[in-house]
Amino acid sequence: MSLLVPDTGLLFWMALSFGVVLFVLVKFGFPVIIKAVETRSAYIADSLEAAREAESQLATINRQAEAIIAEAQNERKTILNEAQEAKNTIVSKAKEDAEAEARRRINKALEDIEGSKKKALAELRKDVAGISVKIAEKIIGERLKDDQKQQELINKLLAEEFAH
């Protein structure tokens, strides 16, 4: 059957046309396309990987940010508490100090007054003693003329002195 016998002429043309097609496509056709397609698929795979990484990084960052915020809030609370405490202590200390100062001043004033009083009293006593002596001298000067009376007065004064 002629269908099963390969024809030499057609074989020649087949070799020619297929040879040309094969040469051209192997040289200029498919390598370019394969390279481009593989480059692109590699690029897509890389991009996907990068996106996944970025996503996980973002999640980490979010978690970190939340942690930071929570920490900051805690810190704020403690700082506020500390401030409150500090305020309280400062106020109470100031009060104490003020009270102490006031007391000190009062005490000092009292002491001063006491001192002044004592000094005044001493001076007064001194003056009074002087005056008394003078008065006494005068009185005595006049009265010592009478011995009797003089003796009585001396006794009386002595008794008084001792009574003190």
Binding site: D7, G9, L10, W13, S17, F18, V21, G29, F30, I33
Partner: peptide, 27 residues
């Protein structure tokens, strides 16, 4: 020798040209 450019040879050439015209612009 009979290397006549037959119907199938022309068909082959047309297909080959078509194939080159399809693939090369894409490339």
């Amino acid at each position: 020798m009979d290397i006549s450019f037959t119907k199938n040879a022309l068909g082959l050439f047309i297909s080959s040209c078509l194939l080159l015209l399809i693939i090369l612009p894409v490339a």
